[in-house]
Structure formats: structure tokens, C-alpha cells
């Protein structure tokens, strides 16, 4: 079991979400940065979809009530285990009573704590993710708070041996080499497919959507990012019926400033969609801090699928190499 010693009410239990229930009007939920969760689970030998703790406010302090392997991925936090600094994207064993402190990120904005065996809260509608609108799933359907004690599942095969091992952060494994060279500092580039109503915008607005940096405002959270910039204009007024939307959809409300729908978004909406951030780049959004800027880079459907496969192959390679390394360490020889 692990105990939350201290956290702001922005940490929650999440897994890969409830995609199959989207069509029944149940929000996706799940981690904002799927690559970070999948990598953490791969490093520990967990099944890919086991639940973790998503941490969005810092510092966060956690105590391991029993010895347990863990992996901390996502943002580059100044984390320590019993006072010993932990490299970013690192898996390590924690002894009984060990205290993990996750400090403010130096880069990125969300940290993911995966534990061997996963956070074993009850599965509701096929997922352990916290669903805030319906107040179910996760730990009592709510944000975590100090004093919460979370059960962990049975750990699989070979344990992690001290001092542990790491993964190359995806920011360096997948540099945005498709982004324009004139990208300003504190700007995250994400690839976007034009969506259904793209053609209904003024040509000048279409161009500006790609050419300018959009600021992520303070009214942004797990449900969506509200962006600020010169409003986009429609060629004609349009009224639409509500229709299904998925995480990554970029809507443009009448104000003209885009909204990106994310993990906790409603399952349907009626605003026109100018584009969709590709699934392979949602982790980049998840790690873009409030107040920073986004640049949208047009991409083809084929390239979007390639990017998704690249991520899958990376996670699979990490899982294979981590498994080999853990078993080598457990064979009694110092690697």
C-alpha cells in the first residue's frame, strides 16, 4: 500500500481511460500523457494499462507502506527517494517506509508514479481512472488528498534492483524535428490534422491557425486547454448539432479562440472543429505548461499513423530491454 502524505487536490488515480464507453456518453478520463504511463508500466513489467498516480501540482509526498518497485516518468521533477535525488524517467525499488518527494518540474508539467502491480483501486466500467464528472472510478471518484492510502496489485516477475534504471525521455527520443526552425522558446509544437469544419474558416484564419503561436491560458486543465490569440474568423455563420468528439479535437467557439478538448472533455460538442492534435502528440500537450505557447504543424493522416506506430515500437523496445535488464540483475551478477 502507498500513502499520500501531502498533495494539492490535483493528483488522481488514472489509467488508459474508458474509450469503449465514449459512445455511451462516458468521458474518456485516463492519463493526459499516455506515453509516460505506458513507459512506466513497461519499465516495471506491468501490463500496459495498469493504473498510476497522475501528479499535476507540486510538491507531492508519498510513503511506501511496504517495499515496492516504482517508476517515475513524465515531467522532469526534482524528485528524491529518502532524500536521495532520482534521475528523470527512473525505475527503482523503494524500501518499506520509504518517502518519495516529487518537486516542482524543471520541464514538463505532469508526473506519473507507476508502481509494480499497479494502483489496485476497483475497476469501474473497465477502467481504474478517476471520472470527475460522475465522481466514480479512481480512489473514491475524487482527487487524492493527504492521508489517502491506496492498495497496490500483485507485482509480476523480476524485481528492479538498486540503483534502478532509466528510460530516455521522449522529448529527446522524439525531438520535434518536423517543427519550423523559427520556433520560439517556451513553445511546444504539435502535429494537427485539419478537421471537419476547417474549410469553413476564412483563408486568412486558416493560415494564421498554422502560422502563429497560441498561448495556453490559465483556464486550462484535464478537460481542455483554452488558447489565447487573435480570434479566428468563420467565412460564414454556422450552427451545428452536438456531435461526438475525442481528446485532441481543436474546437473554435464563437469567440474565435481555440479550445483543445482533452482527457476529461465532454463526449460531444457543437462547436466547429478546425483540427485535431494527433494522438501521438497528446503527450506533448500534457507536458506543455500553462502560460506557454503551442504551434500547430499540419500533418498527413499517413504521417500521423506512422508517429503512433513509432511510439508503440518505442514502448515495446523499452519493455523488452527493461525485462532483459531486470532479469540480468536478478541473475545475481552485477551488470
Amino acid at each position: 500500500m502507498i500513502e499520500i502524505l501531502d498533495t494539492a487536490p490535483l493528483s488522481s488515480v488514472q489509467d488508459l481511460g474508458r474509450a469503449p464507453y465514449l459512445r455511451y456518453g462516458v468521458s474518456y478520463s485516463g492519463v493526459m500523457d499516455r506515453l509516460a504511463l505506458r513507459a512506466g508500466n513497461a519499465m516495471l513489467g506491468n501490463a500496459e494499462g495498469l493504473a498510476c498516480i497522475e501528479i499535476q501540482a507540486f510538491p507531492c509526498r508519498i510513503r511506501f507502506r511496504a517495499a515496492r518497485d516504482f517508476a517515475l516518468t513524465g515531467a522532469d521533477c526534482a524528485a528524491t527517494l529518502d532524500g536521495v535525488p532520482l534521475p528523470p524517467w527512473w525505475a527503482k525499488p523503494a524500501r518499506e517506509g520509504a518517502e518519495l518527494t516529487i518537486g516542482a518540474p524543471r520541464r514538463g508539467s505532469r508526473a506519473y508514479l507507476a508502481v509494480a502491480g499497479g494502483i489496485d483501486v476497483p475497476s469501474v466500467l473497465g477502467s481504474r481512472s478517476t471520472q470527475f464528472r460522475g465522481s466514480f472510478g479512481g480512489h473514491e471518484g475524487r482527487w487524492l488528498k493527504a492521508g489517502d492510502v491506496l492498495p497496490v496489485g500483485a507485482a509480476a516477475d523480476a524485481a528492479v534492483q538498486a540503483p534502478g534504471f532509466g528510460a530516455e525521455p521522449p522529448q529527446t527520443a522524439f525531438p520535434a524535428d518536423w517543427a519550423p526552425p523559427d520556433l520560439q522558446p517556451s513553445t511546444t509544437a504539435v502535429r494537427v490534422l485539419p478537421a471537419g469544419e476547417y474549410g469553413l474558416f476564412m483563408e486568412e484564419s486558416q493560415q494564421r491557425f498554422w502560422d502563429t503561436a497560441w498561448k495556453i491560458t490559465g483556464q486550462s486543465n484535464r478537460a481542455g486547454f483554452r488558447l489565447a490569440g487573435q480570434p479566428l474568423e468563420f467565412a460564414q455563420r454556422i450552427e451545428m448539432r452536438s456531435h461526438g468528439i475525442v481528446p485532441g479535437v481543436v474546437q473554435v467557439p464563437p469567440s474565435g479562440e481555440p479550445i483543445i478538448q482533452l482527457s476529461d472533455a465532454h463526449t460531444a460538442g457543437g462547436y466547429p472543429k478546425i483540427g485535431t492534435v494527433i494522438e501521438a502528440d497528446l503527450w506533448r500537450l500534457a507536458q506543455a505548461p500553462l502560460g506557454s505557447r503551442l504551434r500547430f504543424i499540419p500533418v498527413t493522416y499517413r504521417d500521423a499513423l506512422d508517429a503512433l506506430r513509432q511510439g508503440d515500437a518505442w514502448v515495446a523496445a523499452l519493455r523488452r530491454l527493461a525485462e532483459q535488464y531486470r532479469s540480468l540483475c536478478n541473475s545475481g551478477r552485477t551488470p
Binding site: A39, P87, G164, A167, E168, A317, L321, T334
Partner: peptide
């Protein structure tokens, strides 16, 4: 002993180089 001096990157894996 066991402290990390550097990493060896093998694909996406960072393996620690430790003091014996």
C-alpha cells in the same frame, strides 16, 4: 558503492554505470 556515475543508452533504456 552502487552510486551512479553515468548511463549507457541501449535503445530507449538508460542502464546505470555504478561504482563497484
Amino acid at each position: 558503492a552502487g552510486e551512479v556515475a553515468a548511463f549507457l543508452r541501449i535503445g530507449p533504456l538508460l542502464q546505470p554505470v555504478t561504482a563497484p
